[in-house]
Design a protein around this nucleic acid. Structure first.
Lengths: 204, 204
DNA sequence: TAGATTGTTAATCGATTAACAATC
DNA sequence: TAGATTGTTAATCGATTAACAATC
C-alpha cells in the first residue's frame, strides 16, 4: 500500500516523461527526472522501485517502458468514468480543462439542479438532473465524482453520491466532507491555498 | 516558524468559525472544532496555541476572539493584492470565485496576451497586457500571483513575475516551477489530484 | 468542589534523506 | 575495466498522537 504523496508524484513523472518522449528522449536518470519534478533523486528511485520497474545501472530508465509501467500501476485497464457535479463557473472550467486530457479517465456526465442546464451539452458533456444520480451513475458505470457545488450544499450532495455508489471524490467545495471510511476524498481548497501563499509571501 | 499544513488548517478553522459566528455560537471546544475540520482535537489545540491564543479551561475557546486572533496571525494588516495571470476558462472561474470573498486578499488585476481581452473588465477585474507586468505590479503594490496559463508557458511567465517582484505564486499550471528560494509556490495540480482519486477509488 | 477542557510534554509514527554496495 | 547509476538499507527528520497535570 502506497500513500497519497508517491501516487501524486507518479502522476507527475508520467506527464513529464510523456513530454520527454515527444522530444525523442530514450532514457533518463533519476537525477534528471528529479530536477524536472522538483523532488530528490532518491525519491524518484524509491517511487519507481515501488511500482516494480527496474532501471539499468549506468544508463538509467527507459522512458517509454517507464511510462508504460506507471500506466499499468495507476490506471484501471478498462478506464474509469467520472461525473462532474455543479456546472457553475468552476464546473465549466474543469469540464473544459479535462476534456480529452486523459483517455482512461473521462468525464462522461455532469449533474446540476438548474432546469436551464439539464439536458444540454455543456463543454461537450451531457448535463443531467442530480435527481437521477442513482440511475446515471449505474448506467454509465461512474466511480468518481468531481464536486464543484457551493459549500452550503456540498455535504448533502456528497451524501447522494455516496448513496449512488461513488468510490472517490475530488472536492472543490471549501468545506471538509464527512464520508464513510472506504471512500477516498481529495480536497482542492483554493481559498486555503491562496491564504497560504499570502502568509508565506508576507513573512519571508 | 510554522509550516504549510498548520497555516492551511488555520485558514480552514477561520472559515468554520465564521459560519459558527453567524449561527450565534459564542464558544467552541477543541473537540467540536476538530470534528468540523476533519482533524484531531490535539491538533486544533496545538494550532491555536501556536498563534498565541488561549482558551478557557472548562468553557473552550471564544469564537469571536479566536477568529480575530487567527486574522491577526494570517492577514497582513493593510491587506495584500493579487494578480491573476491567464484569463482562460479557469482564470475566469477563479476571478468569479474569489471576487469579494476575502477583503484583505483581493485580485486587483489580470494579465493576458490576447488583444481581445486586454483593456477589458472581466468578472469585475481589469485585464492588462503581460508586457506591462512590471509597471502594474509596482503601481498596484501586488505581491501575489495566481498562475492560470498553459503548462508550456508557465515557467516563462513565472520568470517575468519573479522579475517584477512577486513574492508568492499560486500555480494552477500542471508543471513544477523553478523559482528563487525566497519565493513561495503553492501548486494546485488538478490532473494529479484526479488521478490520485482514481487510484484510491480503484484499489480500496 | 467536581467536571470538563486546556496547554504541553514525551512517545510514536511515517516519510524523507544520505549513503553505499551491487551492477551494467 | 572504470565510471555512472541503480536498489536498498539505516539514520534522520518532522509532524502527529496520546497522555496528563494544570486550571477555570
Amino acid at each position: 500500500m502506497i500513500s497519497g504523496k508517491p501516487i501524486g508524484r507518479l502522476s507527475l513523472y508520467r506527464r513529464l516523461l510523456n513530454s520527454l518522449l515527444q522530444d525523442g528522449e530514450q532514457s533518463i536518470c533519476s537525477h534528471d527526472l528529479a530536477a524536472r519534478a522538483g523532488v530528490t533523486a532518491a525519491q524518484v528511485r524509491r517511487d519507481i522501485m515501488n511500482i516494480g520497474y527496474s532501471g539499468n545501472p549506468n544508463r538509467g530508465y527507459d522512458v517509454g517502458k517507464l511510462v508504460e509501467s506507471i500506466g499499468n500501476f495507476l490506471d484501471a485497464p478498462e478506464g474509469q468514468n467520472v461525473v462532474l457535479v455543479g456546472v457553475g463557473n468552476l464546473g465549466r472550467a474543469i469540464l473544459a480543462f479535462f476534456a480529452g486530457r486523459r483517455p482512461k479517465l473521462s468525464i462522461v456526465a455532469a449533474f446540476d439542479n438548474d432546469p436551464e442546464k439539464i439536458g444540454r451539452l455543456i463543454k461537450g458533456c451531457r448535463c443531467y438532473s442530480i435527481k437521477h444520480a442513482d440511475k446515471i451513475i449505474q448506467e454509465l458505470d461512474i466511480s468518481i465524482a468531481t464536486l464543484c457545488v457551493p459549500a452550503k450544499v456540498a455535504q448533502e450532495v456528497a451524501d447522494i453520491l455516496v448513496q449512488a455508489g461513488i468510490k472517490g471524490i475530488l472536492n472543490f467545495a471549501p468545506v471538509p466532507l464527512h464520508v464513510p471510511y472506504y471512500l477516498y476524498v481529495e480536497d482542492i481548497d483554493m481559498t486555503m491555498s491562496l491564504e497560504k501563499v499570502a502568509y508565506f509571501a508576507r513573512i519571508t
